[in-house]
Write a protein that binds this DNA or RNA. Structure first.
Lengths: 233, 233
DNA sequence: GGACAAACGGAGAAGGCCGTCCACTTGTCG
DNA sequence: CGACAAGTGGACGGCCTTCTCCGTTTGTCC
């Protein structure tokens, strides 16, 4: 804000929610907020009240709102790390010599991430149109994904009619499991992914490994809380 | 219904939300409420405010609450028809001479129903533990389902390691699509189901029909409202 | 150490939804 | 037609959430 020599509150060009130029106590509080939010989102879902996050961080509500004016900005911050991890999973997959194995591992890894963190899935699903970092990372992920699919198909292991959009299909389907069965989500997810992967193989004649075990689901357990709330709304 | 001559407000043993013994205007209003609720649930999701339903039905809130003391009772009423339709789909499948074809058609039909009505899926997912009709129908559906799976496996067309719980897996996965992509849900659902069905076949060497076309999805469209709200919370 | 801006926390306004209460209207039966 | 119970609608209190205002505290720099 100043053009003067010292006491520069914030360097120009820094994101307003960034940590630069903050007083040390403020920075400390900000970190605690992010950590508290991470926990809260993971346990209670993305719709947890702001006040609950503030309480967890032992901070006033005003402090929270000062750092993160909207819930969206907080969510973006919290999941930025995991999102870039997601993107790096794509890079890893591309680096693999065996494209099919890379493809397969990618699907499995991302779905496992989704299954482990309720908030992550929800954050993914709420799809902020204007979160810049998200947008950039997303585009990169999409391009990498398309390339990966192309290579896996060229190798003859991935069926030719598989479309890159089908990855989104898988993620959405997987998110349905996560939303529906909180506790058994990881197991259920593994099994679903195994089924799908089998279906994605070009040579479906060859037997795959045995399926992961079934999760203890029944029509009655459909959507009943496994350990969380069971539904978002 | 009655053991007496006249003016009996309500016969004992009749369900409290039933339509019996209501004054004609009241019955009329009740019908309008159910219809309004059906529309509202389908368009806006199951969490639509009670007041909105009342307004749609051109009825006071009190009238709505008098007929349906809880949101759950209203949902139960609204989806009872579709639920029994669901159950009859199981019966149809059991009646088919070709067990595999019955199994396959069942999955496809139920998923299509889910994809068409946002509210239906949500109602299914919220899993009312004490809605009696639901419970009875559910148990019947579960037993029929198990039988169907057994027969389809006996016929050698359904893979032996398929578990009846896997049907729930499919429904949950499908509900993820419906929640995530409102407008393109039917198309997306068809494709997902096609993939899964292929994977469920015992003889995966034989080529299936071509896949249904991809829905226009991208990572960016993940969860963005196709035409509805995109998320329940 | 002292001055000052940065940062803080809690109170509370605003808005939304739920579910109830009660004074008024209307269908029904004799 | 007249009486009365059944039925109705809207206002209202309670609760929960979001977000802001403002008096007080605290870190930082000279």
């Amino acid at each position: 804000m100043s053009t003067d020599s010292s006491r520069i509150p914030r360097s120009p060009g820094t994101a307003p929610t960034g940590t630069a130029g903050l007083r040390v106590d403020a920075r400390h509080n900000r970190d605690r907020i992010v950590e508290a939010a991470r926990e809260a989102f993971s346990e209670l879902g993305i719709d947890v009240p702001m006040a609950a996050i503030a309480r967890r961080a032992r901070v006033g509500v005003a402090t929270l709102y000062r750092r993160f004016p909207t819930r969206e900005s907080l969510v973006t911050e919290v999941f930025a790390e995991q999102l870039t991890e997601c993107a790096s999973v794509v890079d890893d997959a591309l680096a693999e010599p065996d494209a099919w194995h890379g493809f397969r591992t990618l699907i499995e890894k991302v779905c496992a991430m989704q299954a482990l963190d309720r908030g992550f899935t929800e954050a993914f699903l709420s799809a902020f149109p204007d979160a810049l970092d998200y947008e950039r990372t997303r585009v990169r992920a999409e391009q990498g994904l398309a390339e990966l699919v192309r290579r896996a198909q060229a190798s003859g292991r991935l069926r030719a009619d598989f479309a890159p959009e089908d990855v989104v299909l898988v993620l959405m389907a997987n998110s349905g499991l996560v939303a529906g069965s909180a506790r058994s989500a990881p197991a259920a997810s593994r099994r679903l992914v195994a089924y799908l992967i089998e279906s994605f193989r070009a040579d479906r004649a060859a037997p795959d490994e045995p399926l992961p075990p079934t999760a203890p689901l029944s029509l009655g357990h459909l959507g009943l809380p496994g350990s969380g709330t069971g539904r978002s709304g």
